[in-house]
Design a protein around this nucleic acid. Sequence first.
DNA 1: CGCAGACTTGAATCCTCGA
DNA 2: TTCGAGGATTCAAGTCTGC
Lengths: 403, 403
Amino acid sequence: MRTLNAGLAGAKSRIKVARTGISAPRSVRQRLAGPASTPPAAALPLNSIIVGDCLDELARLPPNSIDLVFADPPYNLQLEAALSRPDQSLVDAVDDDWDKFASFSDYDDFTRAWLDAVRKIMKPDATIFVIGSYHNIFRVGSILQDQGFWILNDIVWRKANPMPNFRGRRFTNAHETLIWAAKGVGAKTYRFNYELLKAGNEDCQVRSDWLFPICTGAERLKDASGRKIHPTQKPEALLARIMLAASNPGDLVLDPFFGSGTTGAVAKRLGRNFIGVEREPSYASAAQARIAKIEMLPHEAIATVPSKRSEPRIAFASLVEAGLIQPGETLVDEKRRHAVIVRADGAVSLGAIAGSIHKIGALAQGLPACNGWTFWQFFRDGKYEPIDALRAKARASLREAAE
Amino acid sequence: MRTLNAGLAGAKSRIKVARTGISAPRSVRQRLAGPASTPPAAALPLNSIIVGDCLDELARLPPNSIDLVFADPPYNLQLEAALSRPDQSLVDAVDDDWDKFASFSDYDDFTRAWLDAVRKIMKPDATIFVIGSYHNIFRVGSILQDQGFWILNDIVWRKANPMPNFRGRRFTNAHETLIWAAKGVGAKTYRFNYELLKAGNEDCQVRSDWLFPICTGAERLKDASGRKIHPTQKPEALLARIMLAASNPGDLVLDPFFGSGTTGAVAKRLGRNFIGVEREPSYASAAQARIAKIEMLPHEAIATVPSKRSEPRIAFASLVEAGLIQPGETLVDEKRRHAVIVRADGAVSLGAIAGSIHKIGALAQGLPACNGWTFWQFFRDGKYEPIDALRAKARASLREAAE
DNA sequence: CGCAGACTTGAATCCTCGA
DNA sequence: TTCGAGGATTCAAGTCTGC
C-alpha cells in the first residue's frame, strides 16, 4: 500500500490512511458495531481514504462490515481517434491509463475480482450501486447476476447538459446507467427509505430515471491552472440521492474507486461514515482536501422519516386489553356493507365465524387479503373512524412510556 | 414449421406465410435487390409472418438480406409470487411459458443462438435494436459485444405512465432499455437519418432518452372478452422512432419475436417491408389481422430528408469552369479578416500560397480543418454571400440536366 | 453594478469517398 | 486495404469580456 503524498493526519496506524475528521454521534456509532458476529467498528479505517490497489485493500477489510457500496469503475472506453467539435476545438477525452483494457475478457476478469472482494465485506443486508455506460455496464450487470447479487433496479441518470454528438452519427449519449443490487436473492431487509424519498418528490414515488446536471462550476475540482483534476467527477446530487435512498445516518459507505471523493464529501455532509480506496495519490490527496472542507448538516436535516414498517407492531388484542375498544362493540366497513363484533380475545366475529381483523375483512369482501386497520371503523362521539386511529393512540402512549 | 390457424392468404408456397398485402413502390423495391451478391428480393417472404421457431426459420432466410432488426426477446422475468395491488386486485404479470428459463446460462445460450442466426442474415450495413429490462438486457448486451456487434447507443424508453411499485420497496421501474448496434466495428455506413430526426425534434438532435406512453387504449389488441392479447405489446410510436431513425422506405425490417405485430404494423404504415417470425399461432393470427387493417402513409409523409452528405460532390474548379465565379475574383471570410484570389484552376491564393478553398481556409485561421464552402464569401450586386450559394446553383442545374 | 454576447467545455467507442 | 482529401458537424451551462 502506498501512502498519500502530503498533508495527512492520523497516518501512524499500520494501515496508513487519511483521516478526514468526521465523527458520527455516539448513538449512531453503536448501530455500526452491529451484531457480535461482525467486527467492531473500531477495527475499520472509518472516514479515510486508503491509497492503494482496490483488490489488495478490500481484502484487508473485515467481512460483513459495509452497509452501502458505491462503485464508479473504469468504463473501458474504446476511443480510436481524436474528436473535434464543429469549430475545430479538440474534445478532452478520457485517455488515462487506468481506463485501458486489452479486451472484454480482461475487463471481465477485473470486474469479477473487485465485485468478489466487495461482496465479501458487505453486510448481508447491504446493497451496491455501480455506475457505467454502454461500454461496460452490460459486462458489470451480467457479472453481478452471475455472482449471485440480486438486482433491485437499473437506474438511468439523465444528464441535463450532456455533450452533444458532434458528427451527427448517433443519438446524443445523454445518460449513464446505475445498477442497484442486494447482496443476494434472500436479502429482503436491505435499506430503502421509501417514505423519505417520496416526501421529497412531491409525495410521488421516485422513478428509475433521475435527472441531474453533470458536475460543473464551483463543484468541479480544478488545479491551480484551472484544469479539471479528475476527468469523470460525479455530481454530489447523484450521490446524495443514492445515500438518502439506501443508507441511514451512521451507516458505513464504501467506494472502491474513490477518485475525486464525491462519495466521501456527500457521506460526511449526510452524517454517514465512509471508506474510500484510490490508487492514484494525486486523486486521493485532492479528495482529502475537498472532504476536509465539508461540514455535516445539522441532525434535523438528515433525520430519517420513520417508515410505517419500522413502527412497533400493535396487536388488535392489546387495544382491547388497554380498554381503547370494548368487547362487544361493532365494527363496520366504510360503506357499511359488513359488520363484525369485537371479541374479548382481540378477534372479531362475522356471524358464526371468528378471526383476526384482517382475515375476517378479507373473508367479508371475498378477497385474498385485507388490511383490517384501515378497513374496519368504530363508532365514537357520533361518528365513524378507522380503528387505525386507535393504533396511533396506542403507539403514542408507547412512545411516552419510553421517555 | 406450423401454419397459422386461420384466415391466411398466400399460404400455397412451400414456406407457409401470412401475406399482409403491402407492396412497396417499384422504385424502392429495386433498392432491396441490392448488389448481385445478395439474393433477389423475390426469394424473401416479404411482408409475412412466419409461424415457427425463430432459430429454425431464421436459418432458412438468405444471408445478407436484412436492413434493420428489431428484437423484443423474452425478458426472463424472475417472478416468485403473484403481485397484488394495495386494493388486492391481482397484477396480470408475464408468466407465460415462453418467458421461462432454468438459469442465466440457459438464457445466455438461447440469446447467443438467436443473435448468431440474426447476424448471419443482416446486410453488412444493417443495424439491430434489442429491447429489454434489467432482467435480461445485461446478458443481451454482453453477448452482442462478444459476438462482434458494435454498440452505437444504449437508449432508454422512459415510460410516461409506468406501473407504480406497489410495495414501496424499490424505485418505480419506469423505463426499458434498447441497445442499438451495428453488425461490426467496421460497419461505418449504417443508416441513421440524423436530419430527419432533428427536424422532427425542434431542430435539436435526438437524445438517448425517449419518452413514450406504454401501449394502452385503442392501440392495445384485445380479444372478444376484453383481455389483452399479448402481455408486452410495444407502442407503435417506439417502433416508428426506430424505423424512421435507422431505415429508409423500401428497406426490409426483421422481427424475430413478432408477438402482436407492432413491427409489421409500423413497417407497413411507413412503407418499409417486414418479415416477422412468431412461434405462437394465436399471436401470429392476431398480428396478421391487425396489419391487414393498416394503410401505408402517403409517400410525401414518409419521404427521407436529403442529407448534405448524400448530395453530389461539386468541385470548386467546376464553378470556375462554368463561369459562376471568375478567376481573379477576391473571396473573404465573414469577418473580413482574410482575403484570397480565385485561380483559373479552381484553387485559391493566399499571398504566395495556393491550395483548395478548404486547405487555405484552415491555413488562414490556423485550424486543422475548415469548410471552405461556408467560410469564404464572394461579392456580387453590392453584397457578400458564401460560395456555398454558387454550389447550390450548380447542383440545381445538375438536377435539371438529369430530367 | 448589470447585462449582453462571446467563449469554453463535458465518460465519445462521432465521416466518407475515391484512388 | 490504406491513404489523402473533401467537407460535414453541437447543446446546455458555465465563465469571461466589454460596455
